[in-house]
Design a protein around this nucleic acid. Sequence first.
RNA 1: GGAGAGUUGGCAGAGUGGUAAUGCACCGGACUCGAAAUCCGGCGAACCGAUUCGAUAUCGGCGCGCAGGUUCAAAUCCUGUACUCUCCUCCA
Length: 425
Amino acid sequence: MLDIKLIRKNPAWAKEKMEQRNVSGSQIDDLLILDAKRREIMTQVEELKAQRNEVSKQIATLKRAKEDANQQITKMQHVGQDIKHLDAQLEQISEQTEQILVRLPNFSDDSVPVGADESANTELRKWETPREFSFEPKAHWELGENLNILDFERGAKVAGSRFVYYMGLGAKLERALYNFMLDEHQKDGYTEVVPPYLVNNDSMFGTGQFPKFTEDVYSIMDEERPLTLIPTAEVPLTNYYRGEILSEEQLPTYLTALTPCFRSEAGSAGRDTRGLIRLHQFNKVEMVKFCKPEDSWNELEKLTANAENILRKLNLPYRVITLSSGDASFSSAKTYDLEVWMPQQNMYREISSCSNCTDFQARRSQIRYRNSEGKLEFVHTLNGSGLAVGRAVAAILENYQNEDGTVTIPDILVPYMNGEKKITK
RNA sequence: GGAGAGUUGGCAGAGUGGUAAUGCACCGGACUCGAAAUCCGGCGAACCGAUUCGAUAUCGGCGCGCAGGUUCAAAUCCUGUACUCUCCUCCA
């Protein structure tokens, strides 16, 4: 959530920043009109309440002295009516203000390339050149099906399209990967967490998925109480400290978790219909950080390096992209995407997304800390995938495939595969 | 699933219709070479608004798990709800 005071202070700047994110500047105008009205009513109602408090004290004094207070009581009955009326108005206008405010995305950092969509993204760096194949590289789904380690057909039968079974060494490769990732992140100072996979609406609001993106997730009703299957571990990890005041010593806090992620993929019909790239359920290792505001930009670089570390140790070629203002996600002030090389598609595909959400999520979820002057401040939150496990499996299958259709296990994973060096039929 | 108890400041804990005791902690001061002890004073956290360019500050609102209701007035009464604990039941 944006700081309304910041918008109040500099409306023109706020409008420009919102337009960079494909949000009409008129939203800011509407917001400020409502905000001015809200404060006007608030002043009125607060004056009346002050009066009521004052007279109530007189009534109490009179009553204690066994004197007559009827005149004051009658007067306050009217004041009470006025307060009720104005409070109702205030509530209505506050709701309208909130409606707008909670749907505005975070401000992009000034270092972010300005543009409406992914065409304005910029490449920051590239690591390793993709391998030259002496044969036509196969798609990972073809390799996986031939090796009997991926079964999309039965996934579709049992659950529907965009679901898969990993079998045998495929399942083991998946497990090897996330064990490896979690071990690496632990070395980098992250605490391993197993969080809830179902979360309540407050949590979904806290990280910015709700109220705007209800279509993208699976929700269930549990005794009238809605719960949502997490679309990413960012939600339970960032909400870990929701509503809390942290001490300075608790910062920075690094958390990591392997979780399944559930996404309805509404609006992506027809895209990546084959393979492991876009499933309704996939595993992901996520990293989340809470830090002091002054540290968050440095922490973003470190977080991104932690994700890159995984790809480097797996020896998978990748590049780092800075997402443009229009392409970055709702809560993010700046996002780096890591894209891994996929030989069959002959292109880089997103495998990780590392974002600095500044105080945007912290304000929504009320996560603060007491700074050295004893003042409360919102923390900054960051999150990044390290990595999407399914996509990593896909990248390994394609990059490590041999001409005979077998797949060599990356050296670093061999110990995690009980010494298995190759996947054969 | 059933029954009961509870939720009050940083912590402990009183308050059952008249506007949140008290203790510890904390902050300031005195004493001291300095500290401890002692004494004096201050202090519920957060949030919002007005005055202000802004900060400080002042005033006000708000504030007893949360949301409603009754009342001139609610921590207190009523309704709903969340969470915690205990017991029973069930269960991996």
